[in-house]
Design a protein around this nucleic acid. Structure first.
Lengths: 190, 190, 190, 190
DNA sequence: CATGAATGAGGTTTCATTCAT
DNA sequence: AATGAATGAAACCTCATTCAT
């Protein structure tokens, strides 16, 4: 067997990922306000000073977490089908994710707030969000062309509405399902 | 005589309010992550150890800020008129406030996140939000009765949609105006 | 009796001075290499974090020590008499100080080296040394005018020789007495 | 064949020397206060943990640097000629070295201070200095016998004066030239 | 009420060193 | 020999809090 020896944590680049995920969990639990290098280290079972071997500074770790978290969110496999179906599917996926993984969205909201005072994070997050935005616009434009959009809805503004509602709904995940369903209903013609 | 002493900053309950407002400003600028008793004290020009005469502990100050901030938000003079007009007016007021005072809403989002780990805050905030919620329901029910609500919209769910959208829109105040206008348009029949 | 209560360290500006002197002692014992805020604090019997109440940063403390140490050195009451007597007296005083308080000069050498990488210290030290230098020049010029200087000695260069020899001699205080005596003998005509 | 392996940095004893010289450069730049194994390793392009294959501990490296540095200084080829010429030549050489290589002397002063708290270094340095001292005494005794020494100068004390002045002068290399020239002039009869 | 001094827990980071590979 | 990962002690600094004045 070529398995790694037991009793030793498997080092290598996996350790880096493990740290990022541990930091993500800390963030989900206590927000930036309570993000401590010690706790992150404890999360993977190493000494807190060892983190600096992988991430020279706390900010470096934070950046990695932002990258990880945003990637986590915007990695949806786009389905086939017409624009209306794809839009519906997208909204359904969002709804499902908020219900299934509420922490992910909580962390994303935490990032939104942090980015206001951290240009480095802002750049990453804004970049990722821009991808989402343009994707939404494309879907809405397609739906509009198919005559399936509620009348008088500008696709660009519609995209903003979706983004805003999803973000706001994620702050109260228990009601998020109904909210997004209603948004779907109002936005797309039956 | 109950006159304030001459030559001294007017202490008393005004000092308490000043501290709360200073804390609010700190919160708007740096979030809970960077809320420091020292900075709050500096904001009103007193020594940081003096805060404890007004608020025994930091948490006490935070509670007071939550009270102040939520009061700030839900202090809208309800207009006269029919339910539809009142609903429209309410949405317009929300839109205006987000655009005019974006920090207020940022602080409210900060509170939303903090409340997840702070039952004391949760109670206050949830209480205030419940007021907003029931008020929205009343308006929407009235609008529905007047036949002015989009068909198939449950007033309770509609209230949640408004809350979610307003919260999410406040995270990007520059686009909030259009988003809430579109929400109005989709929700209320012309 | 208006004496300060026993059992409590007498606070006030004395504490600041006590810290500077404690830092001076640490410096004398271990040099900058081993200068620790903890040890300085222990030297006056307070918690190490309390130092920051008096000196926001370590560098601030270091600057204060430099000020204290250099002041310590260049505070010689100039005697009356002719230039030759004053010069002789000055050299005798230097000799005495090196023998009596070797640590003072060790610390001064430590400062000389540190100042090479610390512009803030350099400014202070260079300023003080310039005072010494010009004072030496004056004395040597006076001695030259009185025909008491060794022939062919430029007062300015003579001042540098005194400075260099004193500094070097302080590195081996046990031999410093004889060295400075010899310097006196070579520099000043009997 | 004892040839070095191709394509690899020539390891072996050369690596050891390279490390010592890198450490010397670090010392010249930042003193003991800022001497870091990491920086030394970076100076020769290897990982910092690899140093320990050549020097088990930092102190071992320091000892090697002391040996290297002191050897650097006292490796003067003694010239032929009479004692007076040899003395003059020696002083001229010292002057030249301070002017040409000021860092060498700065490092030596750094060592003088460190040796006060490090018996191991003290032994090495004192041993080397003793060689210099006795050599100076011999030269001065010779000069005295030739009637070329300033009257009333004890060779032993004269040697101390030279040592002290050279050390002190090295702390301000820009003025060292004139100072040592004046010392020569005062000590040796024209 | 306000302050200055002090505290102590805890934060991030640094660094020499060790060890398996 | 060299490396990457980990360690643990220790460094400077921050901050809410307490207390005597």
């Amino acid at each position: 067997m070529t398995a790694t020896r037991r009793g030793r944590p498997p080092a290598g680049p996996e350790r880096r990922n493990a740290l990022v995920q541990a930091a993500y969990r800390c963030l989900a639990e206590g927000g930036f306000e309570r993000l401590r290098m010690r706790d992150v280290a404890a999360g993977v079972g190493i000494d807190h000073s060892s983190i600096h071997h992988h991430f020279p500074t706390k900010q470096d770790l934070v950046v990695a977490v932002v990258d990880y978290t945003t990637r986590q969110f915007w990695s949806t496999t786009p389905p086939d089908g017409g624009p209306v179906e794809r839009l519906r599917h997208h909204l359904a996926t969002l709804r499902q994710k908020i219900v299934d993984e509420p922490e992910l969205h909580i962390v994303l909201r935490e990032l939104d707030l942090r980015a206001r005072r951290d240009p480095e994070l802002l750049e990453i997050i804004a970049g990722r969000e821009e991808g989402w935005r343009s994707s939404l616009r494309t879907l809405l434009t397609g739906a509009a062309a198919a005559g399936a959009l509620a009348p008088g809805v500008d696709p660009a503004t519609g995209a903003e509405l979706v983004i805003a509602t999803v973000k706001g709904a994620s702050l109260a995940s228990s009601r998020a399902g109904d909210v997004i369903e209603l948004l779907d209903q109002l936005l797309i013609r039956a």
